[in-house]
Design a protein around this nucleic acid. Sequence first.
RNA 1: GCCGACGUAGCUCAGCUGGUAGAGCACUUCACUCGUAAUGAAGGGGUCGGGGGUUCGAGUCCCCCCGUCGGCUCCA
Length: 638
Amino acid sequence: MHVTLPDGKRLDLSEQATGADAAAAIGAGLARAALAIKVDGELRDLSAPLSDGAEISIVTGRDADSLELVRHDCAHVLAAAILELYPGTRISIGPPIEDGFYYDFDFPEGVSISEHDFGAIEAKMAEHIRADEPFVRDDIDVDTALERFREEDQPYKVELIEDLMAAQGVQTVSLYTNGPFTDLCRGPHAPSTKRIKAFKLLSVAGAYWRGDAKRQMLTRIYGTAFLDKAELAAYLERLEQARARDHRKLGRELDLFLFSELSPGSPFWQPNGMAIWNALTELWRSENAGRGYREVRTPILYDVELWKQSGHWDKYRDNMYFTDVEGRQMGLKPMNCPAHIQLYKSARRSYRDLPIRYSEAGLVHRHEPSGTLHGLMRVRHITQDDAHIFCTEEQVQEEVAGCLDFGFFLYETFGFEPRLELSTRPEQRIGSDEMWDRAEAALAGALDAKGLEYEVNPGDGAFYGPKIDLHMTDSIGRSWQLGTVQLDYSMPERFDIGYTGADNADHRPVMIHRALLGSFERFIGILVEHYAGEFPLWLAPVQAIVLPVSDRFAEYGSEVAKALGTAGLRAELDARTESVGRKIRDAELRKVPYMLVVGEREAEQRAVALRRHGEGDVGTLELADAVGRLASEDHKRQ
RNA sequence: GCCGACGUAGCUCAGCUGGUAGAGCACUUCACUCGUAAUGAAGGGGUCGGGGGUUCGAGUCCCCCCGUCGGCUCCA
C-alpha cells in the first residue's frame, strides 16, 4: 500500500504497516522523535495500522499537538502512581487542558491529598517514566470492559461506558495500559512514558464528578508536562511573573485598596486607589455625556415589593441582602434596572422622547457565595458603570451598535482586546419566538455591521432576552466578564411601562441593559494586572513626585510641586531628610511615572531634572516646560 | 455553597519532636545635608485569626467558627 506525506511525496509501505513503520521508512531520526501520527488529519497512535492512500504526517515534539499528547500521557502516569500509593482509589477522568492536565480521583475513606504529598507522588511518577513503559492500546467489547471495571471497583469508569453505550450506541471501547495501569481512554498516546521529558504537579482542588454540584466531590490534581526541561522551567517562570502582577498583591504594595475580615468581599479604597477610580470615572462620565446619556443616582435600599414585581424575589432572593426597617421588609438592590424604571415612569413618555438613556455608577450588593470571592474580581459590593436605554423596537439595533462603539472606544483607551460572546435564547424564557428572532438578529446585526468576531453561546441568554458579553483575561489566565449589553422585553412588561406612539396608541418600549466596564471594582482589578501597576500618567495615583536633593532645596521643591498641582496634576513632594538615591528608589518602587529632582542647579535656573519611571534620567527642563509636558500627556490619556 | 491548604508585628516571613515569641522592611528618635534605585545608630511595636478543649504548661496537639488562597459549582 502507499500513503502520502505532507510534502505530497508518495511513500510505499508493506500491507499492515503502522505509523511507526512509516516513520522508520522516512528516517531513523524521525522514528526516534515520533510521538504519534496524523492520518487524514486525525491524531492516532504510532502503532495504529495505516490504510491505503491515507495522507499522513508524523507528529514529533515540534508539532503543536505533541504537548497535548504528552500531557495526556502524564495524566495516565499520575493515575498509575496514585493507584500504587493509595490503593482503593477510584479514578474518573484525566484530560489534557490548556497549559497542562488534571486527573480527578475519589480517594478511599480517610485519605486526603495535599500539595505536601506531591513530592512522593512525583517520585513515583518519575519511576514509571524512567521505566520507559509502553502505552498499549486494546480494543475490547463493552461487556468485557464493564465486567473488568466492575471487578476493579471503578464505578466512574462503569458509568462512563454505560453513557457511551446509551448516548452513542458504542459497542467497543479502547483501553490503554502503561505499566501496571489500565485506563478507559480514547487515546491517542505517545509510544511510551519516556517521552515525558519534564513534568510537575501544580495544585490540588475539589471538583464535582461530571461538573455537577449535586454529585460526588472528587479530588483533582493539576499538573503540567513538557517535551523538555527548559520549557517547563520557562513555564514556571511565567507563572511566577504572573503572580507578581496579581492585583491583590499590587493593591497592597501600592496602597490602592485593602480587604478586611469585617466586610468580606468589599474593598476599602485607599487614597491611591481612589485616584484611579476617579480618573476612570471622569473618562466614563464625559463619554457618557457625549453619547447622549444622562447621569442619574438612585437609592440602594427598597421595599421588597419592588423585588417581587421585578422578579428578583423569585429568581434571586438567595443572593440578596434584606433588612427590617420599622417592620417593613427592605432589600438592597442587586441591579439598578427597577430603579431606572421608576425614573422612566415619572412622566408620560412619547415616542419623541426615545431613546432615553440613563447612566449611573450604581452601587449594588450581591451575596456571592463565600468560596467565589476573589479580590476585586468577584466582590459583594459592586459599583456598576450601568446604563439603561429605553427605546422603540426599531431603534434597538442602532442603540446596541452605539453601546458596542462606546465599549470599544473605552477598551481601546487601554489597549484591551476583549473577547465577545453572543448568548441566545435559553430553554426557559419569556416572549414569543418572533420576538427572540428579532432580538437575536438585532444583536448579531450590530456585531456584524461592525465586523466584529464573536462566539455564539446558544441557550446562554437571560430569560428575558439575548445578550452580548465582553470578556477579559486576568494575569493567571482566568477569564472575567466585564461589559454586557442585554436586550430586555420583560421588565417593561412587568412594570407596565409604555410610550405614546405617532399613532397616538400605547406602545411598550424595549430596555437595553448596558455595562461596559462591568464594574469599577473588577475593571480596576483588570487594569492593575494589565499595567502590572505601572499605570499610564493619567491613571497613576501619584503622577509626579518632586525630590529635593537636600533639605536646603525643599522650598524650591515645594514650589515645583505647587506648580504641578495648579496644572491639575497629582503631585507629591518628598521632603524627607534622605539621600536622593533613597528618594529615587522609593519613588521607583511606588511606580510613580515622573520624578522631578531639584538641587542647586535647578533652583538657580528655575528648572527640574526629569526622570521617567523605569527609564531613568530624561534631562533638564525649564519648570514651565516640564509642567506643560506632563499636563499634555495627562490630558491625552497616553 | 463544596473539597483541600493556609492564617505569627503594618508588609514579607522564621519559630525542630509542646517549655510563656524572632528577623528584614516599614515606623519613631538622633546624627549626617546628600545629584539619579537603600547613610548610620538607637528605640517602640504582637490578645500568635476567634472560641472551646487536652496538658503542670499550647503559636505548636484536638474540636468548632471566621477569613484568605487554589479549584469546582454558581455568577440574574
